[in-house]
Design a protein around this nucleic acid. Structure first.
Lengths: 221, 221
DNA sequence: TCCTCCCAAAATATCGATATTTATTGACAT
DNA sequence: ATGTCAATAAATATCGATATTTTGGGAGGA
């Protein structure tokens, strides 16, 4: 049980705050997959009322991180190898599409964002830290951000987050990753800037599949 | 302003009821795209408390039928030609994939469901009625139901519903559809049962694109 | 021993009231 | 006229209390 930092400034609504905290707790596995999420318990954890908690949980349903059973409460979405495989396969299809569209619509502005977010990611590469996680996601989303298909991007972002959860799950069984991830990122970035759809997509998918293979071996669920 | 039928039996929670009603009202356009959804107003409409209404709206956010603006309430998701085009394109990609996977995993049981749901749809073919709508969706979802990829099916179902909304939008400008839709359905069904992925997918996509072309001409938004 | 039915305990769902925030209006100065 | 600011009105967000539903556990009978 983690205590919430009392000093955290109330910048947004209680619902939004609860949403962010719960989301993080589920992604990191602090709230384990499949666990019953009791309102009263979370109410204490987040020190807020029942309404914001319920609403946050309803929202997390959109992200497929929480399941709602009518009249019977909520629980953290279950995890399984099959689910992980499905996420990987869908990501490959959808990000392939989004990346190709982004490249097709390439603009100088987009390219600059790529270079910038990639740079930030490199600087934050104290691998494993929250900061790097954040920057990594930002870079990957920047690759897709020019697809001119907001729903597609939303699906990709959802799947990205779902995948993160499995990364945390695999991390528990502590095998260490010695692949040269940063070379893979360079390769994707370079291909995207060259506007080479095939090469960009191939290296992106390769990046995901390598991680996927690694994770799926590390998972014991 | 429509009054809700008082005799409707309370089979589920207030939240779920509100969810179904609101969803229907948005799909049919009774709550127009982009409209502000005030809690108090809906509370009266559904005669229930504010909590179920808020929760239902949060849930509808998952379906991309409602947008939530923190601290500033909810509104029905806006509609546009660009959004319609995006939905069509995504449906074509995702249903293509799901249909192919379903066929690849074909089982007698699945085939039987196809035949059955197709039969029900034909019987309900008082085109335009709520009953036909329901049966039509059931048939199309049955086509994808064997993909063994629940998330993919969920995305497809979401997109299907979003598309329906545009059907209602187009219906207002009252051009009438004289295409032989039922022949198209037969064609899809037949190809699926023959386990011919290419032909099934081609006829499904043709079906969607024809409807898409028709709708996008009829829309004046 | 194994069911089934019923009762208490726990948890969820819902309500009504209140606190907070955002939107609106009109007066005042420029 | 026009833009800013304060006061008011409206709407949202949140709380605490209550009603409803589900769950778990035992007593009694087969």
């Amino acid at each position: 049980m983690t205590m919430i930092d009392e000093t955290q400034v109330k910048e947004t609504s209680a619902t939004h705050g609860a949403y962010l905290t719960l989301r993080d707790m589920i992604l990191t596995g602090e709230l384990p997959a499949g666990q019953k999420l009791k309102i009263e318990q979370l109410r204490g954890l987040l020190n807020t009322g029942a309404s914001p908690v319920r609403e946050a949980l309803s929202l997390l349903t959109s992200d497929m991180l929480v399941e709602r059973i009518d009249q019977r409460g909520f629980r953290a979405a279950p995890a399984s190898k099959a689910n992980f495989a499905e996420i990987l396969a869908l990501r490959c299809t959808l990000e392939d599409l989004a990346l190709r569209q982004s490249i097709a619509n390439a603009t100088p502005d987009w390219e600059e964002q790529l270079v910038l977010t990639h740079h930030h990611m490199k600087k934050a590469s104290g691998q494993g830290t929250k900061l790097f996680e954040e920057a990594h996601k930002t870079f990957h989303m920047a690759l897709l951000a020019n697809s001119e298909s907001p729903m597609l991007e939303r699906f990709c972002a959802q799947l990205y987050d779902l995948n993160i959860r499995y990364r945390y799950l695999a991390a528990k069984s502590a095998t260490y990753q010695k692949r040269d991830v940063s070379a893979e990122h360079e390769e994707i970035l370079d291909a995207a800037i060259q506007r080479d759809q095939d090469r960009a997509s191939a290296s992106l998918l390769n990046h995901y599949r390598l991680t996927g293979d690694y994770l799926s071996r590390a998972l014991d669920i």
